[in-house]
Write a protein that binds this DNA or RNA. Structure first.
Lengths: 187, 187
DNA sequence: GAGTCGATGTCAGTTGCTGACATCACCCTA
DNA sequence: TAGGGTGATGTCAGCAACTGACATCGACTC
């Protein structure tokens, strides 16, 4: 017989997501999350650095995906093409769990602190893309700018994707957003 | 005889900046800032929403500057040209107080919470640029993307400007960054 | 001169977050 | 198989950010 149920991190994630969605981030105490997961507040902070981080734990895997896609892009690809390949890989990963993405985004959009955390995660992704490009021999400032531009493209596409009115696939929206960037910048 | 010295907000800003630079953001309590300014902790929170905001109070004026510049750009200007005009106006405003900008950026770069706050302020600027473009008749997603791209360009330029090794003017660096964006996106 | 107003002070309380130490099922090894 | 080590969790005390309620008092108005 086990002393504790396994998967405490996952239970905390679920409990937090449910409570944030139900009564809002600000009206949810860490103690309440922990109780719902059958754990204590102290244990929550052993798994997550702070109350926001519980919603962003998956960012590490996403970053690996992006960096891996850029590394394996064809030698002949331009920086932006390599970045576009990475965005496509990310888009496909999200495609399955749209409902979860929508709920999560609603929670984040309702709270400024969560938006701040999301932005710094996106900035970290941009930096990771830039670094992956530099390993392909791309120089600065092209590497840094491509990273920023790629994330901007993704943000716009993702925003449209989670908006209810839209039924296009995320990968398609990414293509549209990339094309729009070419239009406005290349003119 | 006055009951309190005037300019309490400014004193709090100065005190916070000095202490953050001296011993770091995390090692500075709000009580210490207030004491240095000859006020109480409670008064600090009447002037600033939280401990971070004291460094970002000027963002409102910057936003007005950007929006105004876009509104007064020539009718014939493309979205990106209008955004570029706004970035130039911002660049000129920063140009005078480089020492202050450098110190402030050092403080922000040393702390993640402050970086988060900076990112959301930049995102707000991007949104304001996008909105100003829409008022010129620019459609989405071009308006949103141009806002994001403009801020990315500014970030890259500002980063180089505050780096000690560099002696170029900020407006010049903005031009370089804009040109680089054209190259990577338009190819 | 009374009354209002606005900036500040005082105080008590909640919550996020941390350090120090205890507990105990599980695993490894003699 | 006994005994010790390990890792995840619990317990507890405490700091600091932030908030609400109420008091103070110079300045301004009528």
């Amino acid at each position: 017989m086990v002393r504790w149920e396994p998967g405490s991190r996952g239970r905390l994630e679920e409990a937090a997501m449910a409570l944030y969605a139900e009564r809002g981030y600000e009206n949810t105490t860490v103690a309440a999350i922990a109780e719902r997961a059958g754990l204590t507040e102290r244990t929550f902070f052993r798994h997550f650095a702070d109350k926001r981080e519980v919603l962003f734990f998956g960012a590490g895997a996403l970053q690996e995906l992006l960096v891996g896609a850029i590394a394996t892009a064809p030698r002949s690809a331009t920086p932006m093409e390599a970045a576009a390949a990475a965005l496509h890989a990310a888009g496909e990963r999200f495609e399955e769990g749209r409902a979860h993405s929508v709920q999560r985004q609603r929670v984040i959009d309702a709270n400024r602190e969560l938006q701040e955390r999301e932005l710094i995660k996106l900035a970290a992704l941009a930096a990771a893309i830039a670094e992956a490009l530099r390993r392909r021999g791309v120089k600065d400032p092209a590497a840094g700018l491509t990273g920023e531009a790629a994330i901007a493209v993704f943000r716009i596409a993702f925003e449209q994707w989670v908006a209810e009115s839209n039924r296009k696939r995320l990968t398609r929206l990414i293509d549209d957003s990339l094309a729009a960037l070419k239009t406005i910048a290349g003119g």
